[in-house]
Design a protein around this nucleic acid. Structure first.
Length: 416
DNA sequence: TCTGGGGTCCTAGGACCC
DNA sequence: TCTGGGGTCCTAGGACCC
């Protein structure tokens, strides 16, 4: 049996952990630069759609006494780690699927004890971390997702947990599930399915293999079989990333070359650091530069740069990223976003030397020292010279403290 | 003035090999 | 009129996820 644990309104719940007076109050959390809504508590869902532009909804926030937060990834990341580590005490086999979700196996639990067991998991996490969660269990991953939806939807009845064990429950659950809510069926495919009068997940599983295969490829076919109760979608091992991106929208648009170069250098450096964390090197970079997609005058350009040898040196990646920018930058535009994506990743251990290279990959020792120092003394204490001394602030007008990861932002308790 | 930021997998088609 | 039968690798684009 597969379980999926999903934190309820995760970012909003994180904000509540240290502000318990917000329990039962509507909360929204905004994206970087306070751009749009990326998380809503249950209470806020009726007033604000997902992705709503913050500046358009200011009045809605006020009128409905909605508490607004800038995203605080230090806090969410740390609380996520705590949730996952508790879950891993209850199951030897977990697959962290996203910041707020994890699949886990329950082979070690007898079938008739599963419901009790997952209730203990749920209660423990709520008690130890303070994050409410929902858990669905079923014979396959895609069915566990369905079970999870039921657990959330009928909270009063299910207390946030639901188990699909037999065929009757499976069919009932799939008949209840709208086809567009199936994990793996997105907007395009659900639209096509509805044109064929396929409205429920159950209808989808009744289509012929041939038709599904032809129309939606092996991906669709695997999903169908998984929904039928045959575990086809397996556990994913933790793998190194195949590409790594660092991209940001600027708070205000930038016209001049220098500040954009600084941003890009910082992003290139960040990519290099991420590469070193997973012990990979990259063979090429993609650099892009764009104006706001809402502005009248558009410039939206990118370039792939092949490196002479695989590297994860901040200096080299940065140097080539700036070379890319030099090809892309034209004066006279209001640029709003730039970014670097490193691609063609290879394990460091399989470094292919070239005839002109030293016996050690470039800057390896130096990068080790820099990473070690930054780890010990704080991120970005050592930067490269293309970067500014100052920290670029994004718009974060509603940022809560990093209660659990910064000692000077730790919660204060006033005692009489 | 204001509109995140990451990822994955699959397929078709082109270019090449024998 | 007719023109085989395998392969591989790479890329762009489309679909999906959070």
């Amino acid at each position: 049996m597969y379980g999926i644990l999903d934190c309820n309104s995760f970012y909003a719940s994180c904000e509540r952990v240290f502000k318990p007076h917000l329990i039962d109050k509507p909360i929204v959390v905004l994206s970087n630069n306070d751009g749009c809504v990326i998380a809503r508590s249950e209470e806020a869902k009726d007033f604000v759609p997902m992705g709503a532009e913050a500046f358009k909804y200011e009045n809605v926030f006020k009128e409905n006494a909605i508490h607004v937060f800038s995203s605080n990834y230090s806090l969410y990341g740390d609380l996520s780690t705590r949730v996952m580590s508790i879950l891993s005490k209850f199951s030897p086999d977990i697959e962290i699927y996203s910041i707020d979700e994890a699949f886990f196996k329950l082979d070690h639990v007898k079938e008739d004890e599963i419901a009790d067991y997952i209730l203990i998991i749920k209660n423990t996490i709520e008690k130890w971390v303070g994050i409410p969660v929902s858990i669905g269990v079923a014979p396959t991953k895609s069915l566990s997702k369905v079970a999870n939806k039921i657990a959330k939807k009928y909270f009063e009845k299910t207390h946030g947990i639901y188990v699909i064990t037999n065929e009757e429950q499976r069919v009932k659950a799939l008949k209840w599930t709208k086809v567009e809510n199936v994990w793996g069926i997105g907007r395009r495919i659900s639209k096509q399915l509805k044109l064929q009068q396929i409205y429920s997940a159950y209808n989808f599983t009744m289509l012929s293999d041939d038709y599904v295969r032809k129309k939606f490829s092996v991906v669709g076919l695997r999903l169908k079989q998984d929904l039928l109760g045959e575990p086809i979608i397996g556990f994913e091992a933790v793998k190194n990333k195949q590409h790594i991106a660092t991209t940001r929208t600027f708070e205000k648009s930038l016209k001049e070359y220098e500040p954009i170069k600084e941003r890009l250098a910082t992003f290139a450096n960040a990519c290099a650091e991420k590469l070193r964390i997973q012990h990979s090197e990259c063979m090429c970079l993609y650099v892009f530069l764009k104006t706001s997609s809402y502005s009248k005058v558009q410039r939206n350009v990118g370039v792939v740069i092949h490196l002479p040898y695989a590297t994860n040196s901040s200096f080299i990646i940065c140097k080539y990223a700036v070379k890319g920018l030099n090809q892309l930058f034209l004066k006279g535009y209001n640029y709003k976003k730039t970014g670097v994506i490193v691609m063609g990743l290879k394990p460091e251990s399989q470094h292919q030397f070239s005839i002109f290279e030293d016996e050690k990959p470039k800057h390896k020792v130096l990068m080790n020292v820099i990473d070690g120092f930054n780890l010990k003394c704080g991120t970005s204490k050592i930067k490269i010279a293309n970067q500014d001394f100052k920290t670029w602030k994004m718009k974060q007008d509603y940022l809560s403290p990093r209660y659990t990861t910064a000692i000077d932002e730790i919660i204060e308790i006033k005692c009489n």
